[in-house]
Design a protein around this nucleic acid. Structure first.
Lengths: 227, 227
DNA sequence: CATCTATTCAATAATTATGTTGAATAGTTG
DNA sequence: CAACTATTCAACATAATTATTGAATAGATG
């Protein structure tokens, strides 16, 4: 009876962690926070939810020690507490993308609608970069680039792309990335550049995926984008 | 609007996976199933829950594609569908053990009560086995041993330990393992053998941890057992 | 120290999860 | 094909989760 009670307690504690990520909005919050820290208000804008609800979700995440809060001036900045949170999210996505047919379908439907023809994985990029000159562009907001980016990537936020397009080379292959497979900024960038006849590919992996890859060199084979 | 709708749909799908593991009993089910496949009835006995409830939990896990079911004679045998499920569970535990002070406290309180003095990690075992002769014993039920075990381990189910104790060497160091850090069988074995003055250590990691280690050689540094 | 404001708390209503019991089902076995 | 049985379904009561609004709070800033 004491042994089963320990077991129960431990599993209850563990389920506090999984419960924290068992809500779509909280998952999205973690995904956004994986890029850099944000204030409650900024986050509420990112995930399209009221400030009070966002705050409540953040408190659930904080209670499970997935994020931590730090005051900075008038704002409270939330951030991911530890790389093990990134591993957890990575494992969830790995499983989600592999196993749940709906997601593959949703994403490829979306891509079909956006006419994203070609995408590339992180592995393929690393190979390609050795063979030919590749220009890697980071289309996330500049603050996220400043908080961390893939080596040799140039920051061209999506919002500025049209303005700065003229400075991009037509000869080189351009590879655009953003927050990762669930983010559409790179897809939008590809669409814009495609229309102007640039040689451009989308990379599904983002900075976080690159960072995790540094630590765990395996896993990274995800399927290519559909028609 | 269509872009935010894709995002929402994808996160909703992902949360189906996390929701599936956000319940203590379901987490326990996955943990048990990580050892080998079981029927619904066996599982209901393992997790101390009615057959109907167990079945319902299993269906949630199946819907999220974490487990799969296969009929074998009169029984339906459930099993883990994919190694990525093990990775997910590993990531959850990694985070739980690292971040949640309560778990550390619970476990070390329990060990104090059981007078478990020494434990060893998988890494330490591998080093030790090179230096001196070590006898590795697997104290799980024999069927689980047959379904997979750490190389060179000998099967001595906890239930048979007292009977077979005479055949064990007093000179060698004995290392006992079971299902992993949340399982108490190895701890019980250590207690029994300690009383008979065997040189015995508990290893917290189990077969699953060993298997994952083959794939991802990092992470495995968990703290030692407390007094 | 009073004002201002980002964040959190409280209360609510709607929705969803949980565990149980007892009946139904599907599939095997004699 | 009839009897049997492991598993699943249905219905229920209880409990927990969710998003919202509006009020309270804590802390910075002038």
């Amino acid at each position: 009876m004491s042994s089963s009670s320990l077991k129960e307690q431990v599993y209850r504690e563990l389920s506090r962690v999984t419960h924290a990520i068992s809500n779509p909005k909280r998952m999205e919050l973690i995904d956004v926070l994986s890029q850099k820290s944000f204030s409650v208000e900024e986050l509420s804008r990112e995930i399209l939810m009221s400030v009070a609800s966002t705050s409540q979700h953040l408190q659930v995440l904080k209670a499970a020690r997935l994020v931590e809060a730090e005051r900075s001036g008038n704002f409270i900045m939330y951030s991911i507490s530890d790389d093990s949170v990134l591993h957890l999210v990575f494992a969830v996505k790995e499983l989600g993308f592999r196993k749940i047919a709906e997601i593959e379908r949703l994403i490829s439907d979306y891509k079909a609608g956006k006419q994203i023809l070609e995408s590339i994985t992180l592995d393929e990029l690393l190979v390609k970069a050795k063979q030919e000159k590749v220009l890697l562009i980071d289309v996330r907001p500049e603050e996220e680039y400043r908080a961390g980016h893939i080596p040799d990537a140039v920051s061209i936020p999506l919002a500025q792309l049209k303005k700065r397009m003229a400075g991009l080379p037509k000869g080189k292959t351009i590879v655009a990335y953003c927050r990762g497979p669930l983010c559409v900024m790179a897809a939008d960038a590809v669409k814009i550049l495609n229309e102007k006849k640039f040689k451009v590919l989308r990379m599904e992996d983002g900075y976080v995926e690159w960072k995790l890859k540094q630590q765990y060199p395996r896993n990274s084979k995800r399927k290519r984008g559909a028609a």
